[in-house]
Design a protein around this nucleic acid. Structure first.
Lengths: 223, 223
DNA sequence: TACTCTATTTAGTCTAGACTAAATAGAGTA
DNA sequence: TACTCTATTTAGTCTAGACTAAATAGAGTA
């Protein structure tokens, strides 16, 4: 297996995320996520597909998927990222809205040895501070039932499992509202037409969340 | 001040080390340290001198020196490197021969915020595990008297202050011989002609060190 | 004063990964 | 069946930082 550069690792990570639901990732979607021009993405996809071994399967105008080799690289980088986020919060006193950017740079340069040491001092955590699953050393992912907040029926009691990690302003806001992994709440109203879900947390004023945000908050249904 | 790339930071760090004694660093010396071709170094020196602000002063065929701006970058990177080495040993359980390479990659990507956090959890250390001085946040260096082992008269009692950090095999050997910063010893013989200095550590067999190694071990003279 | 050796520089090339501008495939519409 | 729109690709360019091969400056020597 050849060494991969930071840009290559970023592409693979992005493709991994965009193909979670099984469908190929489009050139434009990748370009948007990475803030690159689509033409640059096309060039890189061709190179990724031409590598030995190929890291993606690329059908012109139909998008890309990861090969097993590409998925391994992606999961390795994601493991680094989430272990680092956890480490920065737990051991270095970072706030949870500060760690994404730092982890995005460090994830490409830490050795396997360092990955192993970080995992060890953290006690091999399975979830990062935002509730995202951390791939294990063998690259398998801890599985659990999770549903976006937008798909839970009104009236349900829920526990927050996961929030997005890449928007510092949103994270500060969620923190101020005490909406963190572990927080329990009731769905006061679920209004698809208005695209708002309203949460009620133990005796505090109701919290309305628009669907663009609600779709990124994953929860488990308690009752 | 423009952002500097990892290669640029490596050049500046190397030039800093090569110019410690005040004389300009030669193209070849830099090439050798960085394992690059001299022609590549010439190209980079021209670019470093042409930057705004210039990071080096470069006189064709006479070598380079750092400008104040270049020195600041070098010291910043060296601070990162030595804080990281200390952190990896103290907090992540690395051995002292494992940390140099890891620090060489991390030093280019950690944020000022992370530098600050690492320094804080370590209690703002002034020396790294190999005894090298860590530039303070204001980039001043802790000063102390130190002499290479090769320049201490025979019979002196000494304390080891500093060993080189970049040779893992040598570090393992020194560790096995219990020659670490803090170790006290007596100079049993100092033989410039044979180029050997022999140390005696509290009731253990004498340890002969050749001058190429002895010149890299810095000590303070106790008596 | 010309000669030689070594360190250094110049000239030209390559690669990865970005870019812009122009071309085009294919889906959906008139 | 031709037309239009959008996503995507192609073609060509740029930059940093490496390389090799050839030229040369300057120190030291004959």
């Amino acid at each position: 297996m050849q060494k991969t550069s930071p840009p290559v690792q970023d592409y693979l990570k992005t493709i991994y995320e965009l193909t979670r639901e099984g469908r190929p990732a489009s050139t434009n979607a990748i370009a948007e996520r990475l803030r690159l021009q689509p033409a640059s993405v096309t060039g890189m996809l061709q190179r990724l597909a031409a590598r030995q071994p190929p890291l993606v399967t690329y059908r012109k105008r139909h998008g890309v998927q990861l090969t097993p080799a590409g998925r391994r690289v992606a999961l390795e980088v994601i493991r680094h990222h989430r272990l680092l986020e956890t480490f920065l919060v737990e051991k270095l006193g970072f706030r949870w809205d500060e760690v994404h950017e730092e982890a995005c740079r460090l994830e490409h340069v830490i050795s396997e040895r360092m990955e192993e040491r970080i995992a060890a001092v953290l006690g091999d955590p399975l979830f990062d501070p935002h509730g995202a699953p951390i791939p294990r050393a063998d690259l398998t992912l801890p599985q659990r039932e999770e549903l976006p907040l937008t798909q839970v029926p009104g009236g349900s009691r829920i526990r927050i499992l996961r929030v997005p990690d890449d928007d510092p302003a949103l994270l500060r806001r969620l923190d101020a509202l005490q909406l963190r992994p572990g927080t329990e709440a009731r769905i006061r109203t679920q209004s698809p037409l208005e695209a708002v879900v309203t949460l009620e947390v133990a005796g505090r004023p109701p919290i309305p969340l628009g669907y663009p945000v609600g779709a990124l908050v994953f929860v488990e249904v308690l009752s």
